[in-house]
Measured scan of single mutants.
Amino acid sequence: LQAFIKTLTGKTFTVEMEPSDTIENLKAKIQDKEGIPPDQQRLIFAGKQLEDGRTLSDYNIQKESTLHLVL
């Protein structure tokens, strides 16, 4: 599935991932794409901060969901 990552500066980019991917995997993909170390990334979806060990499906993240990236 493709999801949108929106930063506080208003920049939006897309990442490809599977519902079974962990938040940790997602942070690694963001690092590959944007060069931001995972330990500096905080991802917010539906008002909740996402925990590394959980999966996208745990948070009911669907295709074309928008996640907010806070540094």
Results as ranks from 00 to 15, higher is better:
43 L>G: 00
67 L>W: 03
66 T>Q: 07
62 Q>V: 13
52 D>R: 03
55 T>K: 12
34 E>M: 15
20 S>H: 13
44 I>C: 12
24 E>L: 15
12 T>N: 06
54 R>M: 12
32 D>K: 13
69 L>K: 00
25 N>Q: 14
47 G>T: 03
49 Q>F: 13
24 E>R: 14
69 L>H: 00
39 D>E: 14
68 H>F: 13
43 L>T: 00
50 L>I: 04
67 L>V: 12
61 I>S: 04
65 S>W: 05
24 E>A: 15
34 E>Q: 11
7 T>G: 06
10 G>E: 03
70 V>Y: 13
6 K>L: 08
3 A>T: 10
27 K>R: 05
67 L>N: 02
16 E>F: 13
35 G>Q: 05
45 F>R: 02
65 S>V: 15
45 F>C: 04
24 E>C: 07
45 F>Q: 04
4 F>S: 07
4 F>N: 10
59 Y>W: 02
43 L>H: 00
31 Q>S: 12
49 Q>V: 15
30 I>M: 01
26 L>N: 00
62 Q>H: 10
60 N>A: 08
22 T>F: 06
46 A>T: 04
7 T>C: 10
19 P>G: 08
22 T>Q: 03
33 K>N: 05
67 L>F: 07
1 L>T: 07
3 A>W: 09
32 D>T: 11
31 Q>K: 09
53 G>N: 12
2 Q>D: 05
28 A>K: 15
71 L>N: 07
21 D>N: 06
17 M>K: 00
11 K>S: 08
30 I>E: 00
17 M>N: 02
16 E>V: 12
34 E>I: 15
23 I>E: 01
24 E>W: 13
49 Q>A: 10
43 L>C: 01
16 E>S: 10
71 L>D: 07
13 F>W: 05
58 D>W: 11
67 L>T: 02
56 L>I: 12
37 P>A: 09
52 D>C: 05
26 L>G: 00
62 Q>A: 12
50 L>P: 02
63 K>Q: 14
2 Q>L: 15
70 V>A: 07
48 K>W: 06
2 Q>N: 11
35 G>F: 04
14 T>E: 06
11 K>G: 07
17 M>E: 00
34 E>P: 00
64 E>D: 15
29 K>R: 11
24 E>F: 14
8 L>G: 12
50 L>G: 01
34 E>H: 12
15 V>Q: 01
51 E>L: 09
21 D>W: 11
18 E>P: 03
60 N>F: 07
9 T>F: 12
5 I>P: 01
15 V>S: 00
56 L>Y: 03
13 F>C: 02
51 E>A: 07
63 K>E: 12
2 Q>V: 15
9 T>K: 11
40 Q>I: 11
4 F>V: 14
20 S>V: 05
4 F>P: 02
5 I>G: 01
67 L>H: 02
9 T>H: 12
54 R>E: 06
41 Q>W: 04
35 G>H: 06
5 I>L: 03
42 R>K: 12
58 D>E: 11
4 F>A: 06
71 L>M: 11
52 D>Y: 05
29 K>T: 04
62 Q>F: 10
57 S>T: 08
66 T>C: 06
37 P>T: 05
24 E>K: 13
35 G>M: 04
1 L>M: 10
4 F>K: 13
1 L>E: 05
44 I>D: 04
14 T>F: 10
28 A>F: 12
53 G>W: 14
